[in-house]
Design a protein around this nucleic acid. Structure first.
Lengths: 342, 342
DNA sequence: ATGAAAGCGCTAACAG
DNA sequence: CTGTTAGCGCTTTCAT
């Protein structure tokens, strides 16, 4: 491009090339019905003039904005950022631009954003980790929508999600296989992904005939915002774990929590992994930054994003079976062994 | 809203309300010239129909898209994410939507994005930390543009930037005041922000009559992507620092580097901060996650974003002095003392 | 192979 | 206070 002028229209190109706007349009969109000569002539004028089509007009006319809205709780969260970045990139490759909206998990903001996106006539929506209830009838079926990491319900949605339950099994069974005495530290949450991991932990322990499972679980009263705060409850829990029979292995419901566990252990003079093993979940930077580095269950954000975009683009082009498409697509997770476990 | 229908136009509203489209338009935009009764009547119909204006048409007609493009190297970077998030939020409050583009520091991608943004007829541009040279004549003066964290040149730009030089002085003088023997660990970069910090370090040492300044500087051959890799060079540098006279104080050019220094020290069995003080720059999570937590110079991303958005919105509305506006707006930084320094 | 003309949904004169 | 009308820049029949 090099010299884009935004105030030049197809009309100017047509006039200067000595052809009609229809012909210019055909050449721009390469829809045929023009001679090679006119094509060259027009393209030359386009370049000279620095003409670029007005997407606003194109969209208005063609009823396709070639843009999608991405609703995300917080772009500052590493995990969401990775997904959003990949989505944006993939969509751009497919000629869609993304309008990214930080909802802060506020239903008021979410509604306002949804309104704005509808007014922009976005062709599709990717909604990440929104559990907000009456997320307005707006999007429902009116516009192709993909959910990432959302509790499945019978509302005819298409949901992409990591295999949280399987990941929870993976983590717990790894502890079991190392002959560790398993504990779980979680956060108080209603998030479906967390809940699935917890369920897996319990199921695995039940299967291993371990009794009194609830006493092995600590539910921290924190959000991801204040996770660094010192936590006496946690210290006590770890002390108990250490003094109970066997070498304890703690499953931190996510890497942040696992990190807190390690920090607590450090404070208490407990050696990780020798006296205490710790396994996390997510595979965020935290797992690498911590010392020791945290063994963790990694979510594949790139694949999550890829599946979401593929499905969305598919929904957008397949004007047919819009209603039909629903269900859950699960993306596998995998264990990465680092330094925090024996 | 609750029931947005995207296929209903102002015409439908007009027909059903029994008024003209002009009147409906006036009521929607509250531009006066209508009676209270018609207003109520029309608003009722609007609600019933679930009508929402088509921004595409509005933009096309009014020559204002009410959208801005944000070019950012990598939304996954915590520092950029914070800025982008705040910008997006502020712009949304002012009724602008943001199209966020991850350039990956690739000039090819940057050009493609710029092209797309121009075609979308964005009203303004926020370009974060792009040092890419011929960043195309496109944006230049054709469209209001704000740069965040860019090397000032005489190209008539409006640049918002943290006070990196002052921050560098702050960090170095803090070490000096604690009677520490100052060292600097930096990354090989051409980034103007880094360079300003280095310049400050040197100036402060010069002022303190310290000789042989260059021998006190280590330039690591890393990018932010592989910062966690073990670095023998760094270990050696720290050993030297420790064995030289006085208690060393290392200025890590950013929190990542400071973190690496601490990690190296840990490996070498050197106690931070007793045997070695470390100060960082940026105020990212790293500085809190590390143990000990890193004393650091904090950049105020919220203010950076606020100034950028204010300036941009100002440029957009002030159609007048578009050319005139240029210069550098510096945002203060501040020292936050944590655990890594005596 | 090319052009004329209608119209996407909206705003803004202008006229009344 | 309200309606008519002319476009914004583009795509798309329908002619030729």
């Amino acid at each position: 491009m090099g010299n884009f002028k935004k105030n030049i229209s197809i009309k100017d190109v047509a006039r200067i090339s000595g052809v009609s706007v229809a012909t210019v349009s055909r050449i721009i969109n390469n829809t045929g019905r023009f001679s090679k000569e006119t094509q060259e002539k027009v393209n030359k004028v386009i370049k000279e003039l620095g003409y670029g089509p007005n997407k606003l007009a194109v969209s208005l006319r063609s009823h396709m904005s070639h843009s999608v809205g991405i609703l995300v709780p917080d772009i500052t969260n590493e995990f969401y950022a990775a997904i959003v970045k990949k989505c944006e990139s993939l969509l751009f490759e497919s000629n869609f631009s993304s309008i990214i909206c930080n909802t802060e998990r506020s239903s008021v903001r979410e509604k306002a954003y949804l309104q704005m996106l509808m007014e922009h006539r976005v062709d599709g929506l990717i909604i990440i980790s929104s559990n907000i209830s009456g997320e307005s009838l707006v999007s429902q079926n009116l516009i192709p929508t993909i959910y990432i990491d959302r509790e499945p319900d019978n509302k005819n949605r298409l949901i992409i999600s990591s295999a949280h339950y399987e990941g929870g099994l993976l983590a717990t069974n790894f502890l079991l296989k190392q002959n560790l005495s398993p504990f779980l530290v979680m956060t108080k949450t209603k998030s479906s992904s967390t809940l699935a991991r917890v369920r897996a932990f319990k199921d695995a322990l039940r299967k291993a005939k371990i009794k009194n499972i609830d006493s092995r679980i600590l539910s921290l009263n924190i959000t991801s915002d204040n996770f660094i705060a010192r936590n006496m409850e946690l210290n006590q829990f770890i002390k108990n774990a250490i003094s109970s029979p066997g070498v304890p292995g703690v499953f931190g419901i996510n890497d942040h929590v696992a990190y807190m566990v390690i920090k607590s252990a450090n404070e208490l003079g407990i050696k990780v992994p020798n006296q205490l093993s710790v396994i996390g979940f997510d595979g965020t930077y935290f797992s690498d930054v911590s010392s020791p580095k945290i063994t963790t269950i990694v979510q594949n954000t790139d694949i999550l994003a890829k599946k979401a975009c593929d499905s969305l683009l598919n929904l957008i082009s397949n004007t047919t079976s819009k209603e039909a498409q629903s269900g859950v697509i699960e993306v596998p997770v995998h264990l990465v062994i680092k330094e925090s476990t024996i």
